[in-house]
Design a protein around this nucleic acid. Sequence first.
DNA 1: GTAGGGTTAG
Length: 734
Amino acid sequence: MELSLFGDLNQRNVVNSGGYPIPANFFDAFSEMARQIWLLHHLTFSFDLEALIFEVKKGCRFSKVYMESVTEDAFLSMENPQVSFTVVPRFPIANFKSAFTLEDLFLTQGICEKTRNSNVPMSKAENITDIFEISGYLKMLQRLEAVKTRGVSYSNITFPPSKHFTSSSNVINFKQLHAKLIRNGDMENILTVGKLVADVAISNPANLSYARLIFSNLKYPPNIFMWNSMIRGYAHSSTPKEALILFLEMREKGYSPNNYTFPFLLKACNQLMDLNLGLGIHGIVIKYGFEDCDVFIQTSLVNFYASCGSVQIARLLFDRCLQRDVTSWNALIKGYVRSGRYMDAIRVFRAMQDRVDIEVDEITLLGVVLACSQLGALEMGRWVHAYIEKSRMEMSMNLGTALIDLYARCGSIDLAVNLFKKIREKDVRTWSVMIGGLAVHGLAKEALGFLSDMQRDGIDPDSVTFTHVLRACSHAGMVAEGLRFFDIMSEVYNVEPTIEHYGCMVDLLGRAGCLDEALGLIKRIPYKPDVVLWGSLLVACRTHKNVVMGEMVAKEMLKLDPNHCGAHVFLSNIYASVGQWCEVDEVRNSMKELGIKKSPGSSLIELDGDVHEFVAGDQSHHQTNKINMMLDEIARLLSLEGHVPTVKGIPYDIDEEEKEQALSQHSEKLAVAFGLINTKQGTPLRIVKNLRVCEDCHSAMKLISKVFNRLIVIRDCSRFHHFSGGLCSCKDYW
DNA sequence: GTAGGGTTAG
């Protein structure tokens, strides 16, 4: 696309490409708000030559400079040369070339030397805003107004209360204080008032409007401290967008942000999960030269990108940081965890330990524990536990809770219970994690026992606790108990059922075969049923082979999400299980047309501190030959035990032998074979699987546990199965 | 005078 030279502000593309192509859809990637911020800060600025050189000398780096196309001769013959150009700061977007300075540009155009020789005095410019002259300023104001009144559609997001609002100070107290200041004439003292605004703004989101009232009715202009305080208040409130609007107002009034402003702004972008907005803020950070010198801002950026799912950018920035402290490392570790890159999180942790200047702290370990629990890496988790004890670090309630969760998620419920008993201080989360752990292990009676203990300790169950309690009932087939808890949670404990609780109930009824009741419940709930909720019923339809209802449910799901892979696969599986191969073909063809691929089954197994991943049919592991031999051996021994592969769920109209072949390559079987080869006789095998265990693998695992005399623990996406001596802890109810 | 990283379900 041909871009105009100095475009009208109303046009989307205001820049000339100066030799480097700007992607035509560049501005499409921006949300409206980001665009406002971006435009406000990156428009065509008129610099005089002094200012230009000033910027260059300050080391300001730009990724692009777009100059008015005057010829060199014309430029040099001007009496008072004015260069109009647009700057785009260094910016981590793939299409952008790496940074270069104005000096580079001038050198390439052969005028740098000449301007240097002209001895232009470096005088007037005090700061960047002094020398910027934003053209089209009034138009910008109009556009800002439009954004403010139109609003951006964040209203449906709810935000948890922030940890920053620890004080529950009643607004009345602040009003009294305010009145006192007025009476004593202290409102003239900008420092005192600043403190008041800051305190009120951060005390409680509910007090923000009062803080704003003080802030807006001052007899003198607020200082940057007050602006920051207000922005901080909004950044941590349920309306973080206000922080950015306030920032725009601040800029309109001619204030420059300082180093304190940016962490608050990035916090707001983080809350809004708006990548484009943060990109805009990042641009401003660079413009003000903070990117390379402020560790707080750098960490805020790392954290922001990581939270918004751009962990690669976070890593890029992290690697480029001049200063890194424990918080920066923690932000990166958490970023990897949030993005599901657990092994990377652990790699970063290991690299961190090699650093003599960085000391691991509780938050680091929390991140690592989280990664381990997702990976099912029990040994690594135990190592963290030992590390805490060895380093005499205090086992805080948070860390204890995370570790209990880890043990439970890694299949070691005994270790979880032991640790739970040792921890003195417990809150509702500690209890909930314990109850949840017992629930997924199918230990419903024990879970309910802990629920009573918890109440005896004076702690009331919350919404999450009840999710676990209902799930415990569901896994154990305790329908009556589940229904009872569902009733009393709102009646007695004032916990209103959420869609998750309804999901548990659908699951509970569905598993128990009460499909009509489950469907009835879905029709009665006060929420719009979502894909997850229908999904629970769909699983039940498959288990109980109700083709008619299953078909209806899958179609409902596809109405909500036409690309829902699970619904397609279940539909195909349902047809396959009753031999309706034409319908199977139809579903598979429509999947092909829509470009949907079934996510492959994947199993993880930890060996000597390393996690090995196996994908169904995977032949890429370096021990593949040995694994295949072991699989043959398993098949031989199992057939001696009378095992006949259950091929019903296989969604292909292929011959029986091929079906058996497909089954034998399920990821958990590969992982078990690998485990059997590489561990000593009697060592338990712990496997984490991303999907549900299929019927054939389930019965095979029972027999493998018997024939090889091993405890096999498999965590699938819904619960644990402990296979031992030919039986499974789920009692075949899953 | 102000700042960055934090635990439970789905």
